[in-house]
Design a protein around this nucleic acid. Sequence first.
DNA 1: CTGAAAGCGCTTACAG
DNA 2: CTGAAAGCGCTTACAG
Lengths: 342, 342
Amino acid sequence: MIAAHHATRRAAPTLEAVAAAAGVSRSTVSRVVNGSTQVRPGVVDAVNAAIEKLDYVPNRAARSLASRHTMAIALIVPEEAARFFGDPFFAAIVQGITRALESSDYVLNLQLASRTSPSVKTKKYLLGGNVDGAIVVSHHSDTEFFSELDATIPVVFGGRPFHPEQHSNYFVDVDNAAGAAQATRHLIDRGRRRIATIAGPADMQAPIDRTTGWQDTLGGAGIATDLIAHGDFTLASGASAMRELLDRDPRLDGVFVASDMMAIGALSVLRERGIAVPGQVSVVGFDDSPAATSTDVKLTTVHQPSTEMGMRMAQNLLALLRGDPVERESILPTSLVVRDSA
Amino acid sequence: MIAAHHATRRAAPTLEAVAAAAGVSRSTVSRVVNGSTQVRPGVVDAVNAAIEKLDYVPNRAARSLASRHTMAIALIVPEEAARFFGDPFFAAIVQGITRALESSDYVLNLQLASRTSPSVKTKKYLLGGNVDGAIVVSHHSDTEFFSELDATIPVVFGGRPFHPEQHSNYFVDVDNAAGAAQATRHLIDRGRRRIATIAGPADMQAPIDRTTGWQDTLGGAGIATDLIAHGDFTLASGASAMRELLDRDPRLDGVFVASDMMAIGALSVLRERGIAVPGQVSVVGFDDSPAATSTDVKLTTVHQPSTEMGMRMAQNLLALLRGDPVERESILPTSLVVRDSA
DNA sequence: CTGAAAGCGCTTACAG
DNA sequence: CTGAAAGCGCTTACAG
């Protein structure tokens, strides 16, 4: 069962062919294809008919070479595939991006990179004029390459940049501190007084802001802020952080967790140890991902509009590519979703 | 904070510039760039030095237009983003694909589609000569578009096609029936006699084969094969299938589940109902995904080499694109990983 | 082993 | 509103 592939691709019709069929010049066909308003309506119809008849699809390479536009957008994710795919937050973001791009002529190029930096090949690709713009999701403090990229092509970031002073970024985010504060306030209102947090990576701005929200709210209420453990947004890391916190103070009665995946890990440890949720310990997550309702005890969590965030990233990038003015910061609203865990 | 983006992209060096710097013709530079062996060593060095000095990166569009190759590969996933991202199996597949592509000049274009069929835009894109080849992961019975695509460009499928007679596919898979048989045999060896299965979607070949493996093994042992419930590979669907099975026969003592995610859902229902695993009910999953060890009771499961499968898909596609002969079927081995659930 | 020349399929000033 | 012409940056026979 060995065989070589024999593609029988019929030569695709060109602009030339359409022009001949419609009885006009290539220039005119090009104008119609690109939606110019400078063409006589009757001619537009004739050209469109020819396009339809020949099933003409413009050659991207030729178009790109002539116009200096690639019509491609890179989606850069500085994460291991396992982490990227393991988190429903990214699923929603990507869904939003693809949805917003559907009605455009742009295609999406996925670039998985390591946390620290893209490969040389990826860098060359991105800097080499192969995409018109980029969306960077989940960037860490140590990825300085993005400053370089940002200076070369329009880039929209998911999440407030770690070093905003380094480059003038466009980004889409929520008010992480405010969301965390609301979650923490909820724990206090529930009568909790020994409130821990499972924080996210220390090299990303969003989780840092969430920790700040937790800290300030507790501080304002005269409650200690010593119970903090870090995870990396994975379920497993949430579990081990929860173990650490319980070992440090078995009497803790509330936890604000910086992501739903980590909260689910924390819940499994609490169950494992026979600690009632929310009876003995109240738990609030962050994201409101689909996973939040898949647990035994449904998760109370801070909702962030992930799909909308993805859509907004793409829309803002599209606007930049058009040359339209765009808000540097797009801050979308969060809200507390109260379920069973707190 | 409104601003338009001002890209200050310096004009990139062209072949022409490199040729001038190296004191040779464009043809020669082109040959060096493309690794021709027909160039005098000394000249090769001079050209490479010029490339290095000028930081030259070939223009993809020009190259593509002249050579009729796009150097792009489409990754087509006929699934909702939520399902695609929710399953660690896909994470491993994508990881394998990107790893195999790293050392090539190809880039990956992600095309999320609905289960039934890609959008008109995506179809035109794929059929319009914008990619040199495609990898299709998780295809369902009703996606006839892929036959058309397969007739146009080289395509490698993940998983045995549903209608193999329709088109002569290249595919990478495991022996699903054999894996399922091994799992079922293990349950019998553990003394289980009332063995159910949570099957996958009925419109995909892999889960169908797994069900067959379960069925044949039970039949061969004179055990009834009436306890079957279907899920869609998601955790939630595994949970409800488990509920259904328990309602139908509370005395069932073993379950073979066609994916780890569904098995995890099943485990949560068993725990919810206070049924001991593996004391009262033994559970075997399929995949050996990272999630298999994230549960309270570690999952016994059929290992399939997901990352290798992804790599193989990409390698086979690359070979097809080179015109090299390729095995139509690449069947990778499975193995039973015995942990705590059975 | 190397170069001059044609050509890939578009876009875009430039005239009219 | 429309067309002729140049040009985007490469590859690839064709000569030599």
